[in-house]
Design a protein around this nucleic acid. Structure first.
Length: 510
RNA sequence: GCCCCCAUCGUCUAGGGGACCAGGACGUAGCCCUUUCAAGGCUAAGACCGGGGUUCGAAUCCCCGUGGGGGCACCA
């Protein structure tokens, strides 16, 4: 176990989030970005957004837009980045090509890197041979010790080439990860990694180290999938004589089953069941950014043995590298639902009402009455798990025509005739009440139930169907109050007609 | 196949040699509250991967197994 807190943890941290624009922003990225954001804000440092677009083949022009939209929606605004600038720009790797080349050449001059003219075909062949012989796969070193003259000759000749890092053949490389302590690799199992491609663009390994150095990044937070190439990264730093930042390799998110990382197939299966790991989808699914953040911050980090509800403010105050957990975590959407409910309940009524509007609009309720919305929102607040559920609760308030179901109007344990009779009695109570408030309506209705030797539930059940025509609804009396007495009376009359018809038809059938 | 990381309830986790017959949360079950549905309150079941050490004492430290995960590209 490493110590929990390092002396440098309270110094301003310069951290960066470096996504490659190749796909849709997902939960794993959101967590990395969040941790970075938290650290920067907690220490008064800077959160840098750097676009790592050195792979032109996989480049997706929509990815960057999706990324910035997702981060902004989550509330993770960066201090420096391609759109906002900063004194260490540019913040897009494709615009920093020369810088990487300069470092690569310096590495060559210092004897830490070399030009390689081997063709892909040769390389593939070598690799296959090694695999067939069950040997470790490592570059054979054909171009490792070419003479200066030979190199110059082939360069002048325009021969296609890459630049490789010269990894020692023997000895070990020890690197330090914040969560795991020292990790030692045997150099013989490492490789002479390509650091500049034949098109002249650096690969991740070079570009990112160069950027982190020149952008004065103090703490690198990245996924654990980078541990295998960590020795290369450390060696680049050391070869250049740069001071290494602190490296923190975060645990990976596993699919809900806990078996492996999310694959494309998994994400599609998820969508079918109304779940998604893509931030832009989660918005439409009715999740709050506050809830997503709260959920995700706890996948790999904890505060103490009790507290789990966190606002952004809480997280900024309480987050710490020392409490990070290196164990991979399976995604659990049930827990997200829980946090979403918690954060919905934590919202101010006006705020929640505003956030419900897009979902109402989606269902066709484009011009809802603001007063009605504000009146019903507190009733919905403890009942909603996701925002989209609002449409299940409010049709009775916003639909033009509300028609109760005849069968449902028949009260439990009563005949249609008795139900009709009861409905008329209920109508009388409602008509006589001065208002639809608890004080004016609840007690008379209970009295009615008592007089008729019925359970309160039977009376309220009939009334609920008549007034809302919904199987479930917000609390009845409050709902009636929102509707107003006149509307309640009208709906009750309509229900009575429906019951009368039922009784008539029932009689005919007999 | 080779290299690396990880290992506490089904899941997320607390745990830093004695405070642990292992605590919290989600989920599950039951009860209470209740006009529907929730929310809320209470309760229950549920875990230290196995084996060796070290130690008076191990969930905690070490080793070996096993299991899970990741990496082995002119992708990141």
């Amino acid at each position: 176990m490493t110590e929990h807190n390092h002396p440098g943890d309270s110094q301003p941290m310069r951290v960066r989030f470096g996504p490659s624009p190749t796909g849709i922003t997902h939960l794993g990225s959101a967590r990395t970005a969040l941790y970075n954001y938290l650290l920067a804000h907690q220490t008064g440092g800077q959160f840098i957004l750097r676009i790592e677009d050195t792979d032109q083949k996989r480049y997706d022009p929509n990815a960057e837009e999706d990324l910035t939209q997702s981060l902004k929606w989550l509330g993770l605004q960066w201090d420096e980045g391609p759109d906002v600038g900063g004194e260490y720009g540019p913040y897009r790797q494709s615009e920093r090509k020369q810088l990487y080349l300069d470092v690569a050449h310096e590495l060559i001059d210092k004897g830490h890197a070399f030009y390689c003219f081997c063709t892909r075909e040769e390389l593939d062949k070598q690799r296959k041979e090694q695999q067939a012989k069950k040997e470790k796969t490592r570059y054979k070193g054909t171009c490792r010790n070419l003479s200066k003259e030979e190199v110059q000759r082939r360069l002048d000749n325009g021969d296609e080439h890459v630049i490789r890092f010269k990894m020692p053949m023997e000895g070990t490389t020890t690197v330090t990860d914040r969560l795991r302590g020292e990790i030692t690799f045997e150099n013989q199992y490492l490789d002479d990694y390509i650091i500049v491609k034949s098109n002249g663009l650096a690969v991740y390994h070079l570009a990112t180290m160069v950027d982190d150095h020149y952008m004065k990044v103090t703490h690198v937070l990245r996924g654990e999938e980078w541990i295998p190439t960590f020795p290369l990264h450390a060696r680049i730093y050391r070869a250049m004589g740069w001071e290494e930042p602190e490296f923190v390799h975060l645990s990976l998110f596993l699919k809900p089953s806990g078996k492996g990382k999310m694959s494309k197939r998994d994400t599609e299966a998820m969508k079918a069941s109304g779940e998604s790991i893509f931030i832009r989808d989660m918005k439409g699914l009715g999740y709050l950014p506050e809830a997503i953040l709260n959920w995700v911050v706890l996948m790999g980090w904890s505060y103490d043995d009790q507290t789990e509800f966190f606002t952004m403010e809480d997280m900024i105050e309480k987050f710490s590298l020392g409490k990070l957990n290196p164990k991979n975590a399976a995604i659990d959407f049930k827990k997200l639902d829980h946090f979403n409910g918690l954060h919905i309940r934590n919202l101010a009524v006006e705020d929640l009402a505003e956030r419900l509007k897009p979902f109402l609009a989606e269902a066709g309720y484009t011009d809802v009455d603001q007063d009605v919305l504000l009146a019903v929102t507190p009733l919905l607040q403890p009942r909603l798990t996701t925002l989209d559920e609002v449409v299940d609760w409010v049709p009775f308030l916003f639909d033009e025509e509300v028609t109760p179901n005849a069968e449902s109007l028949v009260v439990k344990k009563l005949t249609p005739e008795q139900s009709l009779d009861l409905a008329q009695a209920v109508l009388a109570v409602v008509e006589n009440a001065p208002s639809m408030t608890h004080e004016d309506i609840e007690q008379p209705l209970r009295q009615l139930a008592e007089d008729k030797e019925l359970k309160a539930g039977q009376v309220f059940g009939l009334l609920r169907e008549a007034v809302t025509a919904q199987r479930v609804s917000p609390p009845l009396v409050e709902s009636m109050d929102i509707l107003g007495k006149d509307e309640c009376v009208a709906r009750l009359r309509k229900a009575i007609i429906i019951l009368e018809n039922l009784v008539k038809n029932g009689a005919n059938n007999e």
